[in-house]
Write a protein that binds this DNA or RNA. Structure first.
Lengths: 343, 343
DNA sequence: GCCAATCCCGTAATCGATTACAGCTGCGTC
DNA sequence: GACGCAGCTGTAATCGATTACGGGATTGGC
């Protein structure tokens, strides 16, 4: 007399359902996965499922099917509006496709990013979207032998066989400079974020491009850099205003731009009359600031969408060739950069 | 000759490691989980693990141990700054404790919230933190028979045996009214969010409390409500200003307050000289707005922290009595509500 | 009436880990 | 020398699902 039923009070399994329906576990599984056609069986299984309150165990299912129904998104810090926009874009798309979203905040720690890639072969997700600050050789190495599909948002070395969504802020910044010059601005300052990152460098190069295109030279006293915070932006603006008289300030970030606005207000400089201000990322902050901020949109939302769609395509067809998508930055003009009124 | 090794190229399992180390699978598992003490065995297993590049399969592990190492957080919309603050608080605490964070955005859909609770018995997470807009009977029902520990952030009916972190905006709003009255304000308007929610109702009641305490009557034309958006706030402020002359506006949200600021600016009303403005949630927006917004903090970050800690306590000891924690709102005073200067 | 084809269904193997249980070894003690 | 005990270790059962395979029943064609 084998103990078929360990404890009748236990959680219902596929076996419980099978007994209640008077069929085999195989039939139950088939009905659950839509693989059989006999109406009568389907009905009985359905009823039994409802009666015993059965719900599939996801661990057991994952073990057998090798799929988890989960996708992870890894970025430096969800507090950053750009990453937040990506999450907002990614979440509904994955959800629509039946995936759950798992979040990794790496705190801008490279070792952490590598660890995330590495942990993929625990197979706790079916895919990953990652937005690294910098892509090191270690990254590439891990990317190439990742256990599950990965989509990278960011610049990837050429030839890296991984789906990729990229944007280069450089032309965006250059265009913003052109816009300022067109508006009659002559002394354009740059408040950059950390420079030892790929985006930081791009912004700086874009600034130089813009100046060159306008036939201007870089003046060291017009360039500052700081960390991404309102205070950082305010302080950097002070430093610049202490030694120069810019009539425009380009900030690497809307947060920095808001900081600059505060400093300008303190010094009784009118925006945009005395000084134009341009931010970057086109976040909610840009729209709600006063005056509303002109901002270089890096299309975070769109990049998130594209990345999510790329990942879904890859999951549907793992053998397709890696796809690289490039997104163009976009200058969103608002009041803070209106042209100087000719006297 | 049994096919012990299905395909030598396959992913390494505990069996692969056992062979490489010349021990049994049990020993491998013991070393991996720190259950044996023999130095020699430990060394050999460690080496074998490194050699074959073994990583535990999380599905298999979960199936056996009944634990997933995952926790979910469910809220209406991660775009809302209050929820974002919670995520930022929750994430590092869970991570520190070795849990991964899974995100559910329910889009303020009650059915979706119920579905999240229901899906818990797929056992894809070890616990859940949920922040429902409203708690219906269905919620309570599902909460009571949830398959895993749940912590609720929000108002819960008395006697519901679930860990809970709560805040009541009502006294916070009343205090803000008192602050405005102290500052010499006489006509205080309210721009509320959706009223058919628990928080919406609390805010309204707090408003009435505040008026009563100041010996004032409610005037219908000073109260508007709208959805949470800058435009909503701007429009609501217009409606009020069209029919009345408030010298203070209390908004249910920093976003709404920013909208009100825009309307006031358009009408050439000075803040705080002509009209004081108070927001709620004390988000980044309040600090960066101009003038900086006085705001009623609902301590979202702290609530997130508390909820995460409660969940960890519960996971460590499932039999402890449910704990209810109440957080007090806090008035953060900034320039937008400075006292009227006596002429 | 017989054989083949079709359609369902049940048995049992399997995914990759954990762990109860029993067996082995070596040592100390009486 | 026998026995007990401690400390490891290996075998095999187990978690809860999916699915390959083969067996029955039904039907149709000749």
């Amino acid at each position: 007399m084998p103990a078929q039923r360990p404890r009748p009070g236990g959680r219902p399994t596929v076996r419980t359902v099978a007994e209640a329906a008077g069929v085999s576990v195989a039939s139950v599984s088939r009905v659950l996965n839509g693989l059989t056609t006999n109406e009568e069986t389907i009905r009985r299984v359905r009823e039994a499922v409802a009666k015993v309150g059965y719900v599939q165990d996801s661990a057991a299912r994952s073990l057998k099917t090798r799929q988890t129904g989960q996708v992870a998104f890894a970025m430096a810090d969800i507090g950053n509006a750009a990453y937040l926009a990506m999450v907002r874009a990614i979440q509904p798309i994955l959800r629509e496709a039946g995936y759950r979203l798992l979040l990794h905040s790496t705190d801008a720690d490279i070792a952490d990013e590598i660890e995330v890639l590495r942990s993929l072969n625990q197979r706790y997700v079916d895919g990953l979207i990652i937005c690294p600050l910098r892509v090191t050789e270690r990254h590439v190495e891990e990317l190439e032998q990742a256990a599950t599909p990965v989509v990278v948002i960011g610049q990837l070395p050429a030839g890296c066989p991984v789906d990729n969504v990229r944007i280069d802020s450089r032309p965006g910044v250059a265009r913003a400079i052109a816009h300022l010059v067109d508006g009659g601005r002559r002394q354009i300052a740059l408040i950059n974020g950390p420079v030892d990152t790929v985006p930081g460098r791009s912004r700086y190069l874009g600034y130089l491009d813009g100046l060159r295109a306008a036939g201007k030279e870089e003046r060291r006293e017009l360039v500052a850099f700081t960390d991404f915070s309102v205070e950082g932006g305010a302080k950097a603006a002070q430093e610049i205003l202490d030694v120069a008289e810019p009539d425009a300030i380009l900030a690497a970030n809307d947060i920095l731009a808001v900081g600059a606005l505060q400093t300008l207000r303190q010094r009784n400089l009118k925006v945009p009359d005395d000084v134009a201000v341009v931010g970057m990322d086109d976040t909610e902050l840009a729209a709600t600031a006063w005056p509303p901020l002109t901002s270089i949109s890096l299309r975070a939302y769109e990049r998130g969408q594209l990345a999510a769609r790329l990942l879904l395509k890859r999951l549907a067809d793992p053998d397709r060739a890696p796809e690289w998508v490039t997104v163009e930055p976009q200058l969103v003009v608002r009041a803070s950069s209106a042209a100087v009124t000719t006297p």
